[in-house]
């Protein structure tokens, strides 16, 4: 920071520019996002989490193509759990059916992460739409939408997802749609709150004064400004969705064979943990690390985007 220079004869800084100059000096023309990014990089836990998440995703989506075994391939020579070995190509060993543990854990991660992202996108879409409309249009529309959200909160939604899965078959698309449809409630509430505070800000009034239509103002002015909160919440929703998905698959109510996910692998692993604990620990460890990272990243993003909370 450069210190302001003052000439000794500078009697009375009476010009109004003096104050403005002082203020400008503090701002330095850094955008909010750059600022947040800088703070995020300074947060070691969040940064490490981000790196690990990138590595886990790469491993889940890319690495399986380079493994000697696929997730569903049965090694007929090893029809029972075998220990890790470089020779056989089972780097983490096999399960009791002779399937490669590493390949399965990574493939399961691919499914869990995909469900997490897709369901969160669904939740994001519904939540932001409902939240901005309720907050911006206000009045009866707001009442109606928020009453509906309140009502949904009293419904045991996990039960409904299970009912849907049972009734309409346990398929992948239904799964993330259903989970997305129960995860949007909090998003809608948060976005609505933000929209309400934004609504009366001068720049929105200015946009209205120059004749912007409601949908235009929402898309151009409200949504970009609630983005920060939404990003934080998305980061915290993804692990929740992964948990729900794994929970369902663990109970046998989610993903179906021959597909697999972390929850299902944990279930299989738990069944044989007495003989081969690693069948449980590999998928459980991978999932736990991922969930930890999402949570640390979410907390880091929140601190970065909302520094007053520190």
């Amino acid at each position: 920071m450069n210190t302001p220079t003052h000439t000794p004869t500078n009697i009375n800084l009476s010009s109004p520019h003096a104050a403005a100059l002082n203020a400008a000096e503090d701002i330095q023309g850094r955008s909010l996002w750059q600022d947040a990014w800088r703070r995020l990089l300074a947060n070691r836990a969040a940064l490490i989490s981000l790196i690990i998440l990138v590595l886990v995703s790469l491993a889940c989506f890319v690495l399986p193509h380079f493994l000697p075994w696929t997730y569903e391939q049965i090694d007929w020579e090893r029809m029972e759990a075998t220990p890790p070995s470089l020779e056989t190509g089972h780097y983490l060993g096999t399960d009791t059916l002779g399937r490669d543990l590493l390949a399965r854990a990574l493939f399961g991660g691919r499914i869990s992460l995909t469900v997490g992202l897709l369901a969160t996108s669904v939740a994001l879409l519904i939540g932001v739409t409902v939240g901005t409309i309720a907050g911006f249009v206000g009045g009866r529309m707001d009442q109606l939408l928020m009453r509906f959200v309140d009502f949904m909160y009293t419904v045991p939604l996990t039960f409904f997802v299970i009912i849907l899965m049972v009734l309409f078959g346990r398929n992948f698309i239904l799964m993330f749609l259903a989970i997305g449809c129960i995860e949007w409630l909090t998003m809608a509430r948060i976005v609505r709150g933000q929209t309400l505070t934004l609504k009366n800000k001068e720049f929105i009034e200015a946009a209205r004064a120059v004749g912007g239509s409601t949908s235009n103002i929402i898309a151009r002015h409200i949504v970009p400004n609630v983005l920060g909160v939404v990003i934080v919440y998305v980061t915290l929703t993804i692990p929740q969705v992964i948990l729900i998905e794994s929970f369902l698959s663990f109970l046998g109510l989610g993903i179906q064979e021959p597909m697999t996910s972390w929850g299902m692998l944990i279930n299989e692993g738990a069944a044989e943990m007495e003989s081969t604990p690693r069948a449980l620990l590999v998928p459980a460890g991978l999932m736990t690390v991922t969930l930890f990272c999402f949570n640390f990243l979410g907390d880091g993003l929140r601190d970065a985007l909302d520094p007053k909370d520190r």
């Binding site: 302001p4 003052h6 000794p8 500078n10 009375n12 800084l13």
Partner: peptide, 13 residues
């Protein structure tokens, strides 16, 4: 106070 002072002179800085 010297930057805002109407009486400030060299020494004050």
């Amino acid at each position: 106070f010297h930057p805002r002072c109407g009486y400030a002179f060299e020494k004050c800085t």
